[in-house]
Amino acid sequence: MNMHARPPQLLPEHAAFQTCAVRWVRHWNEHLFSFAIERPASFRFRSGEFVMLGLEGEGKPLMRAYSIASPTWSDELEFLSIKVPDGPLTSRLQTIRAGDQLYLGKKPTGTLVADALLPGKRLFLLSTGTGLAPFLSIARDPDIYDAFGQIVIVHSTRRVSDLAYHDELTAQLAGDPLVADQALLQFHYIPTVTREPFRTTGRIGQLIEEGWLFHPPVSGERALNPETDRVMLCGSSEMIRDFSAMLERHGFDEGSNAKPGTFVVERAFVG
């Protein structure tokens, strides 16, 4: 036993939130980390949804919305987060360890779900930074592979080390027990880096304009087509704003749970 190891952080019970133990933490670099918590037996969510997560603050829980990165069938809830040195929550959250407790909201929600999209052939999941998180859940959902012929994740970061889950995605989710066989044929991963040398460089918009996004193994048209393509956007406010405008100029319309469309964004994270 390590006599210098600190005891797990335990939280007081709170009527509005559940307390869940941290299972594991993975630090990708000095700016980015992933972690997972135990999943309550009663917790249900749709791929792409987010939930409130947090720690005890000054007299009340300090909560923030986090997209769920784990698939709907998993017995744990996985998240991807940036590290903000002076952030009210993330400055503390980045120090959590296995065994610590976090507050978990009881009701997941969100608009970045397949229910908000019309049927289509190709599904493009365009993300920057930690906007990758909900797409990790969506790409491991067996129903997605039945609904679309191709699923394409595009992840843009500033640095190579910011490409979280790069190895797992490059391997086309080979270790996934439910979608590995389908992903081998239908799933494509396109990482791109904007500030360091890499095999693919440039912002996502540049890849679309130059047609690079539609090179093999992605098959079909060499441009986005609202008749057959569906798009999900998750990332910075600037990225969401610019891409939404671009998609609308090309005939796409934003969908919602009440009225499905040809593209969707998570409005909860857009300033």
Rank of each mutant, 00 (worst) to 15 (best):
F17D: 10
P177S: 10
A180S: 15
L112W: 02
P12G: 02
L93R: 01
G220R: 02
T72K: 06
L102W: 03
S137T: 03
T109C: 07
G105P: 03
F35H: 04
T111A: 14
H14M: 01
E196A: 06
C20H: 10
A98T: 13
A268Q: 11
G255R: 07
A245L: 12
R241A: 14
L77K: 12
F252A: 06
L178H: 15
E13Y: 06
R159F: 13
D253K: 12
I138F: 04
F187W: 01
I153Q: 12
A268G: 01
S74K: 12
Q101D: 00
E238Y: 05
F33H: 15
E78C: 15
A223V: 03
L178P: 02
G175D: 13
F45W: 09
A183C: 06
G255Q: 06
G220P: 04
G120I: 00
T95Y: 10
G48F: 12
E49K: 03
V270K: 10
H31Q: 14
L104N: 01
D176Q: 03
V218C: 05
H166V: 00
R92T: 02
V264D: 04
E266C: 10
S70D: 13
S127T: 10
L118T: 14
F252R: 10
A21I: 09
L77E: 11
A171Q: 14
K60M: 04
S244Q: 13
I190K: 08
S236K: 00
E168G: 13
D75W: 03
P108V: 02
F252K: 09
R46F: 08
F45V: 08
K259P: 00
D253M: 10
I151E: 00
N257I: 13
A114Q: 13
H27M: 04
L123C: 04
K107S: 08
H155M: 10
M232Q: 05
V51M: 07
A15G: 14
F35G: 11
H14G: 02
C234I: 07
T109W: 01
T19L: 03
S161M: 01
L93N: 04
L11A: 10
K121D: 11
F17C: 09
V22F: 09
G99V: 12
S137P: 03
R6N: 06
G57P: 11
G220D: 05
E248C: 02
A164P: 10
K106R: 15
S137H: 04
S127K: 05
A69V: 11
W28C: 14
Y103C: 04
Q172C: 10
Q182Y: 03
R203Y: 08
L55K: 09
I151M: 08
D141P: 00
R249M: 12
P7K: 12
S244E: 06
G271A: 11
D176W: 02
A180E: 05
L32C: 05
V179F: 05
E238G: 11
I204A: 01
G48T: 09
A69I: 09
A258L: 12
H166P: 01
H215V: 00
F263D: 02
I144T: 15
Y189R: 02
P71C: 10
V51K: 09
D181W: 00
P85I: 07
P71D: 14
P134I: 09
P71G: 08
T19C: 08
V160L: 12
R241N: 12
S47W: 09
M63E: 06
